[in-house]
Design a protein around this nucleic acid. Sequence first.
DNA 1: CGGTTTTATGTAATCCATTACATTGCAGCG
DNA 2: CGCTGCAATGTAATGGATTACATAAAACCG
Lengths: 361, 361
Amino acid sequence: MSARGSRRKGQGGDGPRSDVAPQPVRVRTVKEIAAIANVSVATVSRALQRPEVVSEETRRRIHEVVKRLGYTPNAMARNLRTARTRLVVALLPDIANPFFSEVIRGIEQVAYENGYSVLLGETQSSLVREQSYADMVAARQADGIITMFHRVPPIPVEGRLPVVNACEYVKDSSISSVYVDNVAAASAAVDYLVTLGHRDIAFVAGPATSPICVDREQGYRLALQRADIPANPALVAVGDFSIEAGERAVELLLSQGQSFSAVFCSNDEMAIGAMRALLSRGLRIPEDVSVVGFDDIRFSRYTSPALTTVSQPKTALGREAMTMLIEILNDPEVPPRKRVLSAELVVRGSTGPRGRGPGAR
Amino acid sequence: MSARGSRRKGQGGDGPRSDVAPQPVRVRTVKEIAAIANVSVATVSRALQRPEVVSEETRRRIHEVVKRLGYTPNAMARNLRTARTRLVVALLPDIANPFFSEVIRGIEQVAYENGYSVLLGETQSSLVREQSYADMVAARQADGIITMFHRVPPIPVEGRLPVVNACEYVKDSSISSVYVDNVAAASAAVDYLVTLGHRDIAFVAGPATSPICVDREQGYRLALQRADIPANPALVAVGDFSIEAGERAVELLLSQGQSFSAVFCSNDEMAIGAMRALLSRGLRIPEDVSVVGFDDIRFSRYTSPALTTVSQPKTALGREAMTMLIEILNDPEVPPRKRVLSAELVVRGSTGPRGRGPGAR
DNA sequence: CGGTTTTATGTAATCCATTACATTGCAGCG
DNA sequence: CGCTGCAATGTAATGGATTACATAAAACCG
């Protein structure tokens, strides 16, 4: 009988012999584990979730079976039952911006420490994509959102919005956020330039839609005011945070024949662009023009000269944001908080005492 | 009656009037939608999944209700039933490395286009974390993995491993990968240096555990050999891909008094570190020493001088990897493939004709 | 020793959508 | 007219875990 080649595989065969290829790894269910360990599914689940309520003896037996068979509970089934995915969405406009990567790293760390995973939501600033990630929360595919954007998409869920704003913040006070005091940080940077003797200080702003950019600009104004320097609107250019934008902004100022001995940029990438524009015009940094950035991304230490910048605690921002989100997820009743971390000016080689300035060419 | 303040909310009240706060958004289920639209749950599900099998009239009615009530099907329930999460894990050692961010961007794009989402798996090269992300596939919390690492963690699933290797590759031929021809690319870079007259060419290697680094080193050797330049082991230093490692490597070579007029680095970050080390020793780039990197990260265009480097098609690598993974997920029978994309040398300012070299100081 | 807790385990409901299979009604055809 | 076949919809099984509640056994107490 065993030689009858026409037997289709999987059919019949009640003896130990079998011509069916051995199933290498099988996906198991609690049921199987329960059957093999000779207990009920409830006991298996308990042995895995709250071992202390299961007797020593039984627990050991179950764990042995689980280990031997390489059983991993089906996360989807568990999630469905517990209504928790342990997934959070990190919403950000641009993953290639090293500032965000470092914030994400902080998020990831705390997430990992708490058994959460991070879903990457790069939006390219597209509203549609933003919304589609927000909808994942509505669809219960993720528990919450950390957004690094100045816009919080509407999430159709009942009760407390499981959202935390990192780096940016929205006016809506019902949303928790973590950020630095941008006004203070920016004005400290400009104060420093003033101390160095600069009076014609250009500013490369970020998009006005972002509150933190408005704050940085306000800090810039504030510092000028404190130093009794009249604000000169012609010295303010706007960019979109990209290197290229910084380059263009400074080129514009130079081509307009504006006279300035220092440039303060709303982020490091634009500062890098600014430096490039200055250098390619033959200007020396910091002898002719000083440059200050914002963020302190990893590369700003390695430009030449190294960039003086406002250092944001990037990883800490991410860690704190994730910590807050977990708090909210564990207890929707916790009141929303705004947490302000401190940023500090890091002086490097791109700033120096006032020199001739490009206007003096 | 309406003035009786003692009425507890939610209780009684059969008229249209009510002092109960309006329930703003309720989470709905198919059942509710079905009841309201006066059809069965099956029909609702069909109207949403395969509208063409539902009659015009019914479909319209259901969609109206769905829209009005803001119903989103519970993804976990669906996933459980369909055994698909539409989530993939992107495994990478370090999110702060801009090379990876750009690959991820490619992954994200294709993922989004195909209704998938990307779970970020930063491992910090830790085996434990690697494994814990791999286990998410076993737990059915993710459908597959794209790893940017030279190690593929074991995944206890039956059948075809839903894994694609991007940028790196493993010997195991059963795993699909996408990468560039590192030997050819590296040797082209070194060929170029030879063309410029360089003969003493240092090499800052990456970790030998990574096959692509071995390949790049082999490319370096090959080019030297083609030019009849004897390989000088003293000119080879090893780093771990970080800026600091590049800096240290070159400092080491310099402090050993090695003589070289060019350095080829296994990645851009180390090249940036190398440049920093050279400049801080007062050497000029490229007049004294030429520097070549590998990857072409966004910042290498903005170093001064701008970095000559081997440009990898980063986004394309990511896109292709995700495309392959989706193929595998849709049909586990598709044979594994190794796809080789082309990389090309981008000449910028950090390379020039042979100069004095640091040995001539 | 009867009665009350406590401890360990089992039974079955539940989470919510998908889908195989069953049913109904109607058009088409010989 | 009766039968077949198709279209539209419904009923109920299913996916795999968690957990409220039920039950059994053991421990404790006066």
